[in-house]
């Protein structure tokens, strides 16, 4: 049986990757943000995972509106970073955890989920940025990845409860996998931000800070919240936070909040992370 060694939550703001590309890490705007992630990076170095499950949404880079899968799962050998309009980024391609990914697909369908299954597909900043935040800029990524895409762009987006249910299946897939891989789960997106409409620039620091503790210690209210509640509290794009529920539901009900970091604004977003470990 493979082992869940940690559940991480993190923002995936594209400007984070752009700041790294431009060498802005230690500028006044960015230094406090990146410094706060050092504890997460160190945790990752010590944890030595073999597989990273990354739950994220595409941002109009891989999927267009001609086909919008509510959930998609990658089973590819390799995932190249997609050109989002600014040209290719100098980061390595991601190697897929192919066999484990197919096993997850099997489990999902067995448990009445109907994912789109992707054999040839690129990944945008939703996956790239979390990997950079926790693994830095290696010549090759030290883990294989299992990407899970969640539609958070075109309504209807999935319900928080559905994301939670998927996390339960993810845990079952990990625990029923015959290998002995060490698996880390990254729920990504958020925190509060709104890019469109007259409320653009909406950031809710109080709700963000409550989220970072609540997702660890009392996630039930977030599972039960409506999508409308997410949009109201966290902004139209902040509703991405539902993707952290996939990670959280895969963990034990009792977890230790090992690291926590919050910074606002990163570009137009309340940004942060948690590192969770299952309580003994």
């Amino acid at each position: 049986m493979a082992k869940i060694i940690g559940g991480l939550g993190t923002s995936h703001v594209p400007s984070i990757g752009a700041a790294l590309d431009k060498g802005l890490r230690d500028t006044p705007d960015w230094k406090p943000f990146f410094d706060g992630y050092e504890a997460g990076k160190q945790w990752m170095r010590d944890a030595k995972p073999d597989i990273a499950v990354v739950i994220f949404n595409d941002h109009g880079n891989t999927f267009f509106l001609d086909r919008v899968p509510t959930f998609a799962v990658g089973v590819a050998e390799t995932y190249n970073p997609v050109d989002e309009g600014w040209g290719p980024r100098a980061i390595p391609a991601f190697e897929g955890a192919v066999d484990f990914s197919w096993h997850f697909v099997d489990k999902l369908v067995e448990r009445h989920f109907d994912p789109m299954v992707c054999r040839e597909i690129e990944v945008d900043h939703g996956l790239q940025v979390p990997m950079e935040l926790f693994f830095g800029r290696p010549d090759a990524w030290p883990v294989k990845v299992l990407p899970i895409w969640v539609n958070t762009i075109q309504y209807p987006i999935p319900t928080p409860q559905r994301c939670w249910d998927m996390g339960k299946v993810l845990r079952e897939a990990i625990e029923s996998w015959p290998g002995d891989e060490r698996v880390v789960i990254l729920g990504t997106g958020g925190l509060s931000h709104q890019l469109q409409g007259a409320r653009a620039g909406f950031i809710n620091q109080a709700a963000d800070r409550a989220w970072l503790d609540g997702i660890a210690n009392n996630p039930e209210p977030y599972r039960a919240m409506s999508r409308e509640d997410y949009v109201e509290q966290f902004g139209s794009e902040g509703a991405e936070l539902i993707m952290w529920l996939v990670m959280r539901a895969a963990m034990n009900s009792d977890v230790n909040l090992v690291h926590k970091h919050y910074h606002a604004p990163a570009s137009m977003t309340g940004a942060g992370m948690v590192v969770l470990e299952n309580a003994a």
């Binding site: 509106l65 075109q154 309504y155 209807p156 409409g197 409320r199 409308e228 949009v231 109201e232 902004g235």
Partner: peptide, 19 residues
Amino acid sequence: MSAAATIPDTPLFDRAGSI
């Protein structure tokens, strides 16, 4: 979901917007 109508200044990218 009718959030577009209930949260001020917050258009959601729904069926109508997508079309």
